[in-house]
Design a protein around this nucleic acid. Sequence first.
DNA 1: CGAGCGTCTGCAAACGTTTCCACTGGTTGG
DNA 2: CCAACCAGTGGAAACGTTTGCAGACGCTCG
Lengths: 344, 344
Amino acid sequence: MAGIKDVAERAGLSIATVSRALSGKGPVSSRSRERARAAAAELGFVPSYHASSLASGRNHNIGVVVPSVHRWYFSSVIEGISATLIDAGYDLTLYNVSEGPKHRQSVLNDFLLRKRVDGVIAVALKLSEAEIRKLLAVHRPIVGIGGTLPGAASIRINDFDLAVDATNHLIRLGHQRIAHLTGGSVYEQDFELPGTRQRGFERAMQDAGLAVRPDWNIPADFTIQGAYASARTLLGGAAGRPTAIFAASDEMAIGAILAARDFGLRVPYDLSVIGFDGHELGEVFGLTTIDQGARDQGSLAVRMLLSGLEGDAGSVATEAEYPAKFLIRSSTAVPPDDSPGYRH
Amino acid sequence: MAGIKDVAERAGLSIATVSRALSGKGPVSSRSRERARAAAAELGFVPSYHASSLASGRNHNIGVVVPSVHRWYFSSVIEGISATLIDAGYDLTLYNVSEGPKHRQSVLNDFLLRKRVDGVIAVALKLSEAEIRKLLAVHRPIVGIGGTLPGAASIRINDFDLAVDATNHLIRLGHQRIAHLTGGSVYEQDFELPGTRQRGFERAMQDAGLAVRPDWNIPADFTIQGAYASARTLLGGAAGRPTAIFAASDEMAIGAILAARDFGLRVPYDLSVIGFDGHELGEVFGLTTIDQGARDQGSLAVRMLLSGLEGDAGSVATEAEYPAKFLIRSSTAVPPDDSPGYRH
DNA sequence: CGAGCGTCTGCAAACGTTTCCACTGGTTGG
DNA sequence: CCAACCAGTGGAAACGTTTGCAGACGCTCG
C-alpha cells in the first residue's frame, strides 16, 4: 500500500511538498505539482483517511440522525443530503434510531461523541438542551431539520401556519365536519412535528367556530397502513362521518383515500382529503397537499452545515424557514349537498 | 478536550494501561480498570476515532452502497443493516448513487478507496470484475445483496425460481393471459434483478405453452406511480386485457391494483395480481406476494461481514441463498368465467 | 529456597498524514 | 545597490491512540 512517502521519493520531492501539491493547499510550483500528481497516479496512491483526519482535524464526514429511514419524508431528506454531500466530497454517516430509545442513547452518547464527524444533521429529532450542549461541545455545526433545536441552527417549515392554511382551505370550501389524522404514538417523545400540525388544525377550527371532536383527532402512525385502519374506523362510524379529512402526512392521506374507496365514497365529491408533504404518489391520487420539498431541505441543510464549516462566521444559530408550496389538486372540493356542513 | 493522557494522569496510571483498561484488551488488574474507568467518566473522555483507527488499523465502519434510498426494498435493507451495525458498535457510511453514473464513479473510485471502511455491502449493484478486484484490494470483506458479485460473498434470493413460482401460481389457477410488470429502464446497467425475474416469468410461460406478448411485458420503474401508469395503458387496451398480472415488486403490484380499480375491475375476481417483495402495505391490499425478508437480508449481510472481519477464516466468497416465503393472500384467484383463459 | 511462570505495568515506537517554521533564491521598490 | 518581500521548498513536530517489548512483582512448584 503506497504511502505519501513513496510518492515523495518517486517524484523526487519532499513529503511536505507532495502533501501540498495533492491537497492544493499552500504554494507549489506547477512543475512540482505535476510531478507529484504523476507519481501519485502511477503508484495508485490514495491518502489515508485517518491519518489526514488526525493531522488536520477535519473528517469530511457528516453524521445524519434520523428516526426512520423507511418513511417517505426521511428517505427524501436523506437523498437530498446524500447527493449534496457526495458532490462536496463528504461522507455521510447514517444513524437510524428507529429501533427505539436504546439505539437513540447509544448513538447520542457513544457514536456521535467520537469526533468522527465534522457536523451533525438531526432530522425531526427532538433533543434536550443537555444533549444539544454535549453535541455542540464536540461538533461545531449542528443543523436540525423539522423542529427547532434550541441553540443550534435549523431548517423548518412553518408547521403550525401551514396546518392552519390546510384546515382553512377545507373550511373555506364549506366543510364543517373535519377530522384530523395525526402522527402520534410511537415517536411521540422524539418528535415535535405531529403536535404542531395538530395544534394548527385545532386553532383553525376554533377560529372558525367549529367543533374539534376528540374522536375525530386520530393518531395514525404516519403510514398508509395506519391511516387506512384509522380511517376505516372513522368513516364506518355510525354517528355520522366527516366531510373532510386533513392528514398530517401524504401517506396518511392516501391511506384515508383508500379507506374511503372501500366504503364507496368518492373523493372529493363525498369526502375531501388534504395531505401534507409533497409525496410523488400524491399525483396518482390527485391529492391536494402542501409540498414541503423534503429533498431540498436536505440539500439546504448540507449547504448550511458546510458553509458553517468552511467560513467560521456561520456558526450562528440561524433558523431558516423553508417555504412550502400549497398544491391544489383534485382531492378537495365543496362538501356534498346533503351534508350538514354545506354552506351557500 | 480530554485525551487519554489526561485520563492516565488523573488515574495515576500509564497511558498504555488506560488504553488497555478502556478497550478491554490485554490484562489489567481490576483495580486499575476501575480507576481508569472512573477517571475517564469524570473527564468525559471519548477516545479519538481517527487516532485509534490509525493506530489499530480498524475503522469500525461499514460502507453501504445503494442505488436508491427511496424505494421500499432499499430502505428496508438499510434498516436491517443499520440496526445490526449499531448493536455491534459499528458506523454505517451510506453511499447513495441514485443520482446517476457520475456519483457511482466517484463513490467507487474516490470514496471507497480511502480505507475508511472495514468492509462494503453493495445492495443490488452490478459491479464489474475490475471494480470488485479494486475494492477487494483495499477492503477484505465485501458482501453483495441481491445479485452476485463474482469473487465476493453475496446474499441473494433465487429470483429466477421464485419468479417461476409466482407465474406458476397464476397458471395453476387457470390464467392464460398474464402480463408482467418489470423494473426496467433507468437502472438497467447497474442492476441484475429485473432481468432475472423477467426471465423466470418467461420461462414459466413458455413451459406452460403460453404466449409471452411483448406488449404485456412492461417496464414500470419499480414504483407505484410507474406501474399505475403502465397498468392503465395495459388494462385500457382495446385488444383485450390480461386476467392476471405478475409484478416484479409489490410497489408495482399496488400500482396495478390501483389502476384496476380505476377501471372498475375487482381484484381478484376480474383481475389477479401477484407481487414480489413483502411490502407492509401489501396487507392493506390483500396482496399475494413473495416475501423476501429485505430487512433480514440486511441484518444477515452485516453478520456475514463482521464474522469475516473478526475471524479471518470467513474470507471465502460464499453465496448464501436467502429463503423467501410465498405469501398467499386475496389478490389472486381463478380467472373470470367469461375469460378465454378460464379452464375447468 | 530458588527457578520459573504468569499477571500486570510502563516505555516508546509505530500509524500516515498536515502544517508550522526556517531557509533559499529571485524579484521588486526605494 | 541594498533591504524587504515573496513564492517555493524541506525538516520536523504535531495529531492521539494502540501495541510490541521488556521489566517488576508475586506465586507456585520442585
